[in-house]
Design a protein around this nucleic acid. Structure first.
Lengths: 206, 206
DNA sequence: ATCAAGTCTGAAACTTGTTCTAGATTAGCG
DNA sequence: CGCTAATCTAGAACAAGTTTCAGACTTGAT
């Protein structure tokens, strides 16, 4: 199985090696700065300097700070997906497995709360100009959830439930990041919404 | 029944008449500019000018653009609550009534999509420094939902369901505002999540 | 009415995201 | 190799949120 080449939108001209390297340096610098101080700490001039790239070049690669952070999130999501798929959840019901997976992801975010802050804030603040990228993040999240459910071809009802779960996931993260909800609270909310899955399950489980 | 004096946090020194008037002018200008062009169109210098107040004064009343927009949302939410409470929803089950109420609110937002954009973006972008205000908005929303359910003393489970509904509501609004979900899609998501209520209902309904 | 404290004003300054420009470098090609 | 188009760089410039400051105005208490 191929290791890289995974996500980047297949459109647009392919990048040369040096360009790929620049892109990588930029994303790395972004994640690093974000890990330090969250959204505000990711300052475009600093990202440019850290990644040894001119400001104009940074903007050529990522047309705005939001684009940059959403791309950073795409990047992190891939890692996450890889990690999660190695050890699949072992709950009985689909609802349990999804909740388990999300809580695992949540614990990963807790290890880098500032990074989580930067990424999630960017994601929810994104306007129409970032729709394609945000959508890609959303699709990736959907894949992770469906994966953990272990479903081949979900029903429309189940897809609705997954959408609602994603809504809850994002919004719960926000309330946690802004200090308005505890970790325990987030856990409860996730478990609550995951019950929707059982509600929409057609027949037997697994 | 008293007409005004409704929301403002009861703490802090009471405002003089002229101060109250200034505050009102600022909120009005904010809503007006937001209605025109959304989040970006609410520029602090313009708000100050429109409301005939010095920039420094504006910042004394609202310490940031986010604070201003969240306060604007509090203001609008009150109107909304008043309007909604006049014609209570007539669905059979609690779930139906909540969905009906939220869809009614959604239609109101559709009439001023730019204003909705400004308020919702501010709400989700708010950091810890705005927690108290955001929390107040959240509480107000909870009250509206519980109101429409017609519950006296909800169980903890039901409160969880309401929290999840709020999460879904906010996040669904965001996806709609950023053009990633249709109105129909939002409707489906709301109806889907409202099913959670029936799931947590203890006994008979109504 | 008068004084002190607090508030408001107008304007400048500062910060950080974003855009623009002129010149150097690089990549692809004949 | 030598050319051309695309890309990159350094740095200035611009935009909007935020801060600061000196002076004018209000308010509340005496």
């Amino acid at each position: 199985m191929p290791a890289e080449v995974s996500s980047a939108s297949p459109s647009s001209p392919p990048l040369t090696e040096r360009q790929e390297a620049r892109r990588r340096r930029i994303l790395h610098a972004s994640a690093q700065l974000a890990s330090r101080g969250g959204f505000d700490a990711v300052q475009m001039r600093e990202v440019a300097e850290s990644s040894q790239v001119a400001l104009g070049t940074l903007y050529r690669y990522f047309p705005s700070k939001i684009h940059l952070l959403v791309a950073t999130m795409q990047d992190q999501l891939e890692h996450m997906h890889g990690t999660l798929r190695k050890k699949p959840p072992h709950g009985e019901t689909a609802a349990e497995r999804v909740a388990e997976t999300l809580m695992r992801a949540f614990r990963a975010l807790q290890r880098e709360p500032h990074l989580a802050d930067a990424m999630v804030r960017a994601l929810t603040f994104a306007d129409r100009s970032v729709s394609p990228e945000v959508d890609q993040v959303s699709r990736q999240t959907t894949v992770i959830i469906l994966d953990s459910m272990g479903l081949e071809n979900p029903t429309p009802e189940q897809l609705s439930a997954v959408r609602v779960i994603e809504h809850t996931w994002h919004s719960a993260l926000i309330t946690w990041l802004s200090g308005r909800a505890s970790i325990a609270q987030v856990k409860i909310d996730i478990e609550t919404v995951c019950r929707l899955i059982d509600l929409t399950a057609p027949e037997g489980h697994r």
